[in-house]
């Protein structure tokens, strides 16, 4: 392998400093406020946040579609620069809800993307065939894009983003239109890419992040709430959780228990849903001793009681105060 190929085998490093975007002048909407991020080379980096958090604005600034009000984005010390067309090679971009030329065939669109990246016609044709196969669109490659479903357009978008074998892949909600099987395949594909590219992708679906991300940044109302490796985030912010499912007809007992638990200091939160109750606790030792006593005191009959693994949803809820799919107020 040559030195150049060696370098290309590692993704790009991204440094975001004080990145701020205000739409509509001085009194306009502050979409992003002083974002600071370091995205390591070769990582799969998830941008997480509710709608309106600033995820898409961040990505648009990252790929040069918008200009920052303040701050900077530096990719590989400026070797890749989205603001300069001659240094834009090395970035693959997938827009949210991608829409392409309906009159083009899928293969033609990916080939054109390759040609625009400077690939020769022959190489672009070969690469287009490769990436269309990789995203599961080989059979539809000769069909017009206008006849593609939303999921197919999203796969096509990923194919065109991959055609130049980018070192930085920027994907805005890359699996939002896919069915569960497509979602699994595309997430697996993104996970594979960490060997050759840095992937930054936005989502409000926490399980997507948990499946493939090395690092996560949580945004809310244009500000960075936290940023860390996924494991560290879970260890730092995820509280021990208990799941209690009552016997049928125990609604009154469940309500009594919820009321009682909300008054004790070692309980952080109590969520009652249609099936049962999830209890987040701050002191695991006390909880393991006291929780069942509280159940007995509330005269609640349980069908099941278990300690559950906290997930990113819990971290998110704790940090942002609402669920990821809920829009910013």
């Amino acid at each position: 392998m040559t030195a150049a190929a060696d370098a290309r085998a590692v993704g790009a490093r991204v440094e975001i400093r004080d990145l701020t975007k205000r739409y509509g002048g001085g009194n306009g909407v502050l979409a992003l406020d002083g974002l600071e991020l370091d995205v390591p080379a070769g990582s799969v980096f998830g941008l997480l946040g509710p709608n309106g958090a600033g995820k898409t604005t961040t990505l648009r600034l990252l790929v040069g579609l918008a200009r920052p009000t303040r701050g900077s984005v530096v990719i590989d010390d400026g070797l890749i620069d989205p603001a300069r067309p001659d240094r834009r090679r090395g970035i693959g971009v997938l827009d949210q809800e991608p829409r392409y030329y309906g009159w083009m065939r899928g293969r033609e669109l990916v080939e054109m993307a390759g040609r625009l990246h400077g690939l020769s016609a022959t190489v672009a044709r070969q690469r287009a065939a490769e990436v269309l196969e990789r995203v599961g669109l080989a059979d539809a490659a000769k069909r017009r894009v206008g006849g593609y479903s939303g999921g197919m357009r999203q796969r096509l978008g990923i194919a065109q983003a991959l055609v130049d074998r980018p070192r930085l892949l920027v994907l805005d909600e890359p699996v939002s239109s896919l069915d569960p099987e497509g979602r699994r395949d595309v997430l697996a594909l993104i996970a594979e890419l960490r060997e050759t590219a840095t992937v930054i992708f936005s989502t409000h679906v926490l399980t997507d992040i948990e499946r493939i991300c090395d690092r996560v940044a949580i945004l809310d109302r244009g500000r960075l709430v936290t940023e860390a490796p996924l494991d560290e985030l879970l260890a730092r912010y995820a509280l021990p959780l208990y799941r209690l499912v009552p016997e049928p007809g125990e609604d009154a007992g469940l309500a009594r228990l919820a009321t009682a638990l909300r008054t004790v200091p070692w309980v952080d939160r109590v969520d009652v849903d249609g099936v049962g109750m999830t209890v987040g606790v701050t002191d695991e030792t006390t909880a393991s001793r006291e929780l069942l006593r509280a159940v007995v005191a509330a005269e609640l009959r349980l069908a099941s009681f278990e300690r559950v693994r906290p997930d990113l949803e819990d971290v998110f809820l704790r940090l942002v105060g609402r669920r990821a799919e809920e829009p910013a107020a």
């Binding site: 030195a3 590692v10 490093r13 390591p40 090679r89 054109m112 990246h117 400077g118 190489v123």
Partner: peptide, 24 residues
């Protein structure tokens, strides 16, 4: 993972032009 120093992109068959021909 140890990151090697990034290299400038390799030259392309068409010289990495403005894209006018492809777009036309």
């Amino acid at each position: 993972m140890t990151a090697t120093a990034p290299a400038a992109p390799a030259p392309r068959a068409n010289g990495g032009g403005s894209g006018f021909g492809v777009l036309l």
